[in-house]
Computed example of a mutant assay.
Amino acid sequence: MQAPEHANYDVVIVGGAIYGSAVAWFLTDNPDFDGTILVVERDPTYEFASTSHTNSCIRQQFSEEINVRISQFAADYIKNFRSHMGGDARIPQPLIHSFGYLYLADNAGFAAALREAQKIQAACGAGTRHMSRDEIAQAYPFYQLDDIIAGNHNTVDEGYFDGHTLFDWWRRMAKERGVTFLTNEVVAMNRNAAGTRVESVILKSGEVVGCGTVVNASGPRALLTARMAGIDMPVEPRKRYTFVFEAAEPLDRDLPLTIDPSGVHMRTDGAYYMAGCPPDDDGPVDYADFAADHSIWEDKVWPILATRIPQFEALKLRNAWVGHYAYNTFDQNAILGAHDAVANFVFVNGFSGHGLQQSPAIGRGTAELITYGEYRTLDLTPLNFTRIAQGARFVEKAVI
């Protein structure tokens, strides 16, 4: 455990993975913020962090405009990463491998929902196409489409990018600008007598650190952090499985990130392919439970791959892992902004699998909120915590 350098910080961020690093970086990059920042991370190896288990995908295919806009900013940010980071020649320039997402509909209701979503995306300038079964077959003849009636596909700024590059450089550059990343753990919080502000956090090593703002960037552990401030929130850890496999007969073109009606998704992954899915019993798990159910590959994923793409009948599994979604049980969308009663407690939580691609816009927006008390560039208020308190769900239909 490391001890903090100062007794007080203007901003204390609980969690140092993608969101802790994003908020820290964007605060240092805001010319109107000149405060001190402490990031407290319990595991500096990030072995079990959702950031380490991400598939690093990005899409604009959402049914709500704000989620489309968030991903559009991310696409621009990724493609101009070095410029956004100040032009430092040390910083690599990531690429977006735009093989796109392909949603497959096997019933008229889902096909109609895809058509409506395509209209919303197109109005935002996204390149999504609504495709008939014949059009899908012409573009990708390797699919077996007997049960499919339509699909949506976008090959513009949609696919895969190296999210670890963003994470690494946000953290590195934030440190260079004076942010303290502390290997320790926040175990309790002290509020004022009225319960309207967090006055200090208590570290596992015993130090009490005063704070102006607390940011909950704790990923799947967000509820544990919130409860220290007397706050309840609908976020829990849920398992998600990823499988990397080799095909005996590789496809002759990139495999879009295909969302099968079964819930299994698959995509190109360099020379290999990647597939993923939730477990059939998709409930909350212990924060330390990363045990794999090996039957999911044999009994669920492989049969679906071989049915949808007959060339995938002969496969060799090369790698597999289990990660945790920070799953928002209320409406599966990000929970942002300040708490309605504890005014200096700020959320960046509950992304339900969308976190990495949303981190540039939400890191920037949260830094604006802390600095100005409002969002200045992209209005993220529809995702604020207040909707939880009001029981007003933000309904996003395109959740994987």
Score class of each variant (00 low, 15 high):
F48W: 05
N154R: 03
A194S: 09
L224R: 11
G109M: 06
H339C: 06
F181S: 05
L356I: 15
N55R: 11
Q390I: 10
T268C: 06
A126R: 14
A226C: 14
Q118S: 14
A7V: 03
F385E: 05
G230P: 00
A22V: 00
H339V: 04
V23E: 02
Y160M: 04
Q357K: 14
V23D: 07
Y372D: 12
R253W: 03
R191D: 02
A341N: 13
H130M: 11
N8S: 04
R197P: 00
Q138N: 09
A17V: 01
G20M: 06
M228H: 14
P382R: 06
A229L: 14
M266R: 15
P261Q: 05
G163W: 02
E199D: 12
A343G: 10
N333L: 00
H324Y: 00
R253M: 07
T377H: 12
N328Y: 15
G350V: 09
K316I: 13
L356N: 07
D29C: 06
T366L: 08
P278C: 14
N192M: 04
G163R: 01
L182W: 00
A398Y: 04
T128C: 10
Y77W: 05
G373R: 03
P360V: 08
E396A: 06
H130Y: 15
I58W: 00
I388N: 12
V40F: 01
V301M: 00
T128I: 12
S56N: 09
V342R: 00
A89W: 03
E368H: 08
Q118W: 01
P4V: 00
I388M: 13
P261W: 06
A288K: 09
Q121W: 07
Y19H: 14
A111D: 03
A361N: 02
G350P: 10
G365E: 01
H153K: 04
L203M: 12
V209P: 00
R240Y: 01
R82G: 11
A150R: 02
E158G: 01
I120M: 13
V399T: 10
R221C: 11
I370K: 08
L102Y: 08
I388T: 14
S205E: 01
R267A: 14
Q138A: 10
A292E: 15
P220I: 02
L182I: 01
S218E: 04
